[in-house]
Computed example of a mutant assay.
Amino acid sequence: MAKQISDLKLGILGGGQLGRMIIQEAINYNVTTLVLDPDADAPCKHICNHFTTGSISDYDSVYNFGKKADIITIEIEKVNIEALEQLEKEGKLVFPQARVIRLIQDKGIQKQFFKENDIPTAPFQLVSNKRELVNPNFPFPYMLKQRKDGYDGKGVMKINNIADIDNAFDSPSLIEELVDFEKEVAIIVARNSNGEMKTFPMVEMEFNAEANLVEFLISPSTYPDDLQHKAEEIAKNVALALNITGILAVEMFITKNGDILVNELAPRPHNSGHQTIEGNFVSQFEQHLRAIYNLPLGDTRSRSNAVMINLLGEKGHEGVAVYEGLEKIMAIEGVYVHLYGKKYTKPFRKMGHVTIVDQNREQAIEKANLVKDTLKVIS
């Protein structure tokens, strides 16, 4: 008899908010969850079945943890790949596959993958150190991105002129032609081991310029259907070229002349899909479980217009988190609050998100602005 979903233990590398929301869906299927995280008080600690404190970048920690699970997944890419490769050799199911995580960990290799597979992306150049930034293949200004360890806006900077190079990253990086884009959008695509594939509707993103984090997300997009269909096909082509199992977030730019350029990939549930919990028939977290357990994929259609706001720690506040204005925004119809279980706040730390759903798009945006102005994470 084939094993049921509840018979296969799920190991999650990383115990932050993404792992927490995966577990919240896994509970509905009686899945036993194991979590490895270096933080003894990580958000997942109190809702998983087994929590281990340890480094997700250390070979022995990841290998020994993985031996206890049947399926292993991630909530962050910065994990020990060699341990995952060994676990795969020993028959453990690792999704996304170790080779996919290895590719995503290096933005330079990721960009070369785009080029080799005819995936539209901005022109780029790989550099070893900041001395190579003086004579780029394209004019100032341009974007500089560290090849490894960048996340949540870290490891990215704009180089306006030669004077900026003095403060530039002095490590293997890539430089990228500055894209004159109209909007940053994202498509989340899921693929199971049978090859079934489904995309969520395209979403539009607004960024916090200071923190370089997604602050405001609107779903579904109002771009023309043909452009949205083109973006969905690009996302599917990326998933096929990777031969990935699981969820893949494909972040893209819509240029001012209507072109679509792929910016970056995330092979896991992603910030650009949080609104799917209330806004779609299936959430990105349940869809990820369906994909890695090789189950039929769920209905990705939108139930309603949905706007998602990241709750970031306020500037000038560091300490035990206080959610100012929480009761006020909970009185607004269609507002759903998700706090991440983090005891301490600091400037721009992701402390939670709020989703606002409304059949009227403009009303959803109006409510979202009210929530943004009212709810503050202070100490």
Rank of each mutant, 00 (worst) to 15 (best):
N305H: 12
L297K: 12
I74W: 01
V377T: 01
L213N: 15
I244Q: 02
K3L: 09
F124S: 01
L261E: 11
V134M: 06
L370S: 13
K92R: 02
Q275H: 15
A249M: 09
A321Q: 04
P120V: 07
G91V: 06
G325R: 05
N310D: 14
R147F: 04
I71A: 02
F140Q: 01
D39E: 12
H353I: 09
E210G: 03
S61G: 03
S302P: 12
V357C: 15
V238F: 15
N305D: 08
L248D: 05
E366R: 15
I56W: 02
N49M: 04
M157F: 14
N135T: 01
P267H: 00
K154R: 11
D164R: 05
K45R: 12
Y142T: 10
A2P: 15
K111I: 10
K198N: 06
I165G: 04
L34G: 01
D60I: 00
R361N: 06
A231N: 06
T222C: 09
T374Q: 02
L289G: 03
A186H: 03
Q97R: 08
D41L: 07
F51R: 05
K115F: 15
I76W: 10
N64C: 07
R20H: 06
E176K: 15
G19K: 02
V100P: 09
A235G: 08
H229Q: 08
M202R: 00
A241H: 05
I56A: 05
Y223H: 14
P224V: 11
N271H: 10
L126V: 14
V214H: 08
I188V: 07
L34T: 00
Q86D: 09
